[in-house]
Amino acid sequence: MAITFEQVNFSYGQGSLSQPILKDISTTIPSGKITAIIGQTGSGKSTLVQHINGLLKPTNGKVIINDFELTSQTKEKQLVALRAQVGMVFQFPESQLFANTVLEDVMYGSLNFGQDHLAAKEAAQAALTMVGLPSQHWDKSPFALSGGQMRRVAIAGTLALNPPIIVLDEPAAGLDPLGQAELVKLMLNLKKQDKTVVLISHQMDQVMTVADWTLVMHQGQVIAAETPTTLFNRPLSWFKKVHLDLPTAGQFAQQLMAQGWQFKERPLTLEQLAQAINQEVTIHE
């Protein structure tokens, strides 16, 4: 289920009032991998991912999602089929909860796509188990849960549809460290099930840990499409220019280098950092 953007342009408004948001984007999001989209606020990340399930249609160009072709001409009726293929979890997804019980809310999507009640219930239970919400909460009102639990319910609402492609728009924003760690586990779990995961994130550590591929957006364009390791080995001046940071380990290594330390390679994970420091110390001894 690869996703291919072919010369995609998108602008809001028409004529003289039009504002270009995406400029001539041609890139591919690999199938069965976790792809992280990073870039500063307003660079067009959310606009880009909303083209994957047809919430937005390209003004020019096309998006090919598996065998579905999305262009400016695509009709609203055809989009329902696409949305069954692409699950999307928005920023602060807990704001979409509405049903009387947690279980009902998670079942909502499956029922929309015409599953029968029993199958929907089973899918919902499986999804809730997957996000790690204990079954004692399933019959409660979603509004009686904590913020972190509500987030899980909302994510389960998307997973229950079992879509081959899952888009997560800053899913970790506002979660506590434990919640974030569980989210990482969940994404790796989805990848194991051969799902294509698209993740918008501002946390470079998270990107380094989970992502197989990264797209960097800047002013409506994709300016880098490569593995996280290649990306985070780019020169520091580049990161400054596009207002991005290195992962924590990389930043720490920079500080050490400012103190006169030397590294053969830039450490990008805490593990690599520890190894590199250990090596340096051994050499000096």
């Binding site: 909303q50 399930n53 919430l55 609203e76 009726k77 329902v80 949305r83 069954a84 692409v86 699950g87 999307m88 928005f90 997804p93 704001s95 979409q96 909860l97 509405f98 049903a99 909502y108 999507g109 929309n112 796509f113 609402g157 998307t158 549809l161």
Partner: peptide, 30 residues
Amino acid sequence: IMNAQKSRGMSFSTGGPIKRAKAVVPLLVP
């Protein structure tokens, strides 16, 4: 919210009047 519910398969522009009225609940409550 409309975007979120649309992504979960809700259609706000198709179906009969009863279906459309029902579609409003997942929009209004949140």
